[in-house]
Structures are given as structure tokens and as C-alpha cells.
Design a protein around this nucleic acid. Structure first.
Lengths: 219, 219
DNA sequence: GTGTCTATCTCGGGC
DNA sequence: GCCCGAGGTAGACAC
């Protein structure tokens, strides 16, 4: 990783156009070709950036980072007015391990679909439709089909998504269930108006790491 | 901005849990409280981060960055095993000026709604509904209402969004138009099945900076 | 504070 | 290559 702190101007042309007037900023060149411009505010996002694969060219005070983007080209031009610091460091690139993402929720619910409704059993995960896979396809005690959409957070979009699947599933009388760790009130309202059942689930409880909420009141 | 290059372990607990095993990485502390962990790959995104407002505490080899997140707490813990470099630089924070975003498209189309359909004229921008504003509300030559949703890229979500507005607008026979710089084929198909018209527009042409595509064939 | 929408979204997977 | 869906999405703005 090469780090340059410099007074500079930066212009971007590509999907849109941007200008950064002369000021002091941090320029990051990652070994994989990534290029980022950060300043001392604005949190998470770089002011300008380019993701690999890139071509980096330097002509004295001018740095150009380019990238083929379809038929056109994305281009970042940096004009260096004063370099205050320049360093290089070999860094590692170990992967980040995550726990608690939607897939983990899906794994637990696939293993115990009964929490989503009495007598539910799994037919298959990632049931294919022509517009994308249904997270879980189940049948209930009566043999009726139930399509389950799983989200970390249940929003209106999730209800719409499940609604599209139900239209395309091609099974009459297939019910819909939205399962999420939290469900927004407006999503719940929309779901009810479409006959979609909402179930809030808790990953830690599903894993048996924590008692259901009931115990909170029983203590 | 304070930059530390160090061999370190990083753990995050909050909306989910993550672990970064021991390796050499860049730690960025911005003056506004932002904290970012980058390595030498992975492009745009930090491996771990926290956006302001944060509380940063240091206990020798241990750095803790915390944030109230509703009733719980987000927490990043960094265990420093070897500091390879540590520097501080005063940076500026000038705003990024953008051109070519959705709002600019909306401004041009508000000024010349005729490109969206014969005889269309604007009634108002940001027409309020109970689920959000319609970008442009127009009437055509017959006095019929037309709701316009504007996007840089027209996707299925945009069609759904316009569909929700049309349901809620409370005007019988209000037509829908999706205007975008490019429209995905599947969005186009869904739009047609819902009676929504699709129009591709070009910001440079709307601004009179470039001739319409026709001239490409006429040269 | 919730709710909604934009984003040069990024990123990954499937076809 | 396109298309779709997840994301600790982040960030902005209205209510």
C-alpha cells in the first residue's frame, strides 16, 4: 500500500463528473490496483475512488487512474501541488469472517422450519423461479405449499419481492411467509393486506444460545 | 488524520459479528471520529469501520472504538501486536461537486416534459403521496394525468416503486412513465406488463450539449 | 427518532 | 458479459 498526503486537485469523469478543488488529502494506492481519495471527514466513503482493474500512470505532478467501463472509460486525474508525505508498506490481505448474515438465518430456518408455522417442513432451499430463487419452499401439515422469504430486516421491498415470487411460482394456493429478525411496521401492514404472514425470528434463539423472549418476563 | 500501519487483530460486534485474524493493516482515524481498517485488496470498502459519532479509547496495545446504536452498542476492538508506522496529518474537508446525478436529470425533464410524450406539460415536481413523492406529475394533451418516475438506471425496483405510487395517487386513469438513461430489459418487460411506458433519455442531449443519436447514422 | 430513496452504491453469484 | 440480490449497505432528506 502506497500512501501519499498531498495538496491536490482531483477530477473524475465516468458515470458522472466530479471536481475536488485544491486541498490537502490522503491518496491510497492498494496493491490490487484500487485507488482511494480520503479527506478528514465524511466517514466511510472515499471522496473519489476507482476499483480494480485499473491503469495508473504518472507524469510528474499528474497522476491518471483509468479503467475500461463498457464502451467508455472512467478516468480520475490528480494534479499534485505539494506532496507532504509519501510512504509504502507491505500489507496482508486476510479475509474477513462474518457471523450473523442472512445466510446463517436461512440455514437455521431450513433446519427447523416448524418455527415459521405449525407442521411446516422443508421441500427445498433456493427454489428456482424465472425471476430468482425463493429462499425456502415448504409444505404445511395439510400438504399446502408455503414460500418463505428470509431477510435480516423485513421491509416493503421484501414484501414486494415475495409477492413477485408468489405470482411466478405457478402453484395455486401457495401461501407466503416473510421471516426476519425485525419487520418494519409498514412492511407488516403491506404484507397483511396481501395475505402474507410475518414471523420475527432471533438467530441466537434459533441456535439455542439464548432462551426465547418469554423468559425475560418470567425472571 | 492519524494513520497507523500495524500488525493487529480486529473484532467487531454490533449488527453482526466479525473477526480479522492477526495481519498487517492500515488503521485510519479521521478527525470527525470516523475509523477505518483497510488492507491491500478489496477495493473500495474498509474491512471494518465505524462512522461518527464514535468514542475512541486506548489502553496500551488495545484500541476500542464504540458507538451507541439504539439500545445496544456497536464495538470495534483492535489489538495492536506491532506498530510499523504512525503518522498524523492535518487534512482539509472540501465538498465534492457532482454533475450528472438523478436530480439533474429531473431538472432537465421538468423543463422539457415534452420529450416524455406528446403534449405533456408539468403540473408539479415531487408530487406528494402518503408513501413518498412522485418525481414529476404531468398532464397530456387530453388533460389525462401522467406520473413520471426518473432514475439514472431503470430497474425492476423502479417499476415497482412507480406501481406503488400509481396505486396511491388516487387519480383514476393516471398513466405511468419510467424515464431513465438506461432501462434494463427485465424492467422494460415488467413495465409493459403493467402498462407503464419506458423512455430512455440522455442528459447531454437534454442539455443541448450533444445531438440526438440520429446524427450518428447520418454522418 | 422512524421511513424512504439515492448511490460513480460495492460486492458476489449465476447464467 | 448481463442480471439479480445482499449489505454492519452509507448518506441525505422529509416527517
Amino acid at each position: 500500500m502506497r500512501l501519499i498526503v498531498a495538496r491536490c486537485e482531483v477530477t473524475y469523469t465516468g458515470r458522472l463528473s466530479t471536481v475536488l478543488p485544491e486541498a490537502t488529502r490522503l491518496l491510497m494506492f492498494k496493491d490490487d490496483g484500487s485507488f482511494l481519495v480520503h479527506d478528514d471527514a465524511g466517514g466511510y466513503k472515499p471522496l473519489n475512488w476507482m476499483t480494480p482493474p485499473t491503469i495508473v500512470e504518472e507524469y510528474g505532478e499528474q497522476i491518471v487512474v483509468r479503467k475500461r467501463a463498457g464502451k467508455t472509460e472512467d478516468r480520475l486525474e490528480v494534479r499534485l501541488l505539494e506532496v507532504l508525505s509519501e510512504t509504502s508498506h507491505p500489507l496482508d490481505a486476510t479475509p474477513l469472517e462474518k457471523d450473523g448474515i442472512e445466510r446463517h438465518l436461512q440455514e437455521e430456518l431450513a433446519a427447523q422450519p416448524g418455527v415459521l408455522g405449525d407442521g411446516l417442513h422443508l421441500v427445498r432451499r433456493e427454489w428456482p423461479t424465472d425471476i430468482g430463487p425463493v429462499d425456502l419452499m415448504c409444505r404445511d401439515g395439510n400438504g399446502d405449499w408455503v414460500a418463505v422469504e428470509i431477510k435480516r430486516i423485513g421491509t416493503i421491498d421484501a414484501v414486494e419481492q415475495l409477492g413477485r415470487y408468489l405470482e411466478r411460482i405457478g402453484i395455486e394456493s401457495c401461501r407466503g411467509v416473510l421471516a426476519a429478525q425485525s419487520i418494519k411496521p409498514q412492511a407488516r401492514t403491506l404484507a397483511e393486506s396481501r395475505g402474507i404472514r410475518c414471523v420475527e425470528v432471533d438467530l441466537a434463539v434459533l441456535r439455542g444460545e439464548r432462551e426465547p423472549e418469554l423468559t425475560l418476563f418470567a425472571e
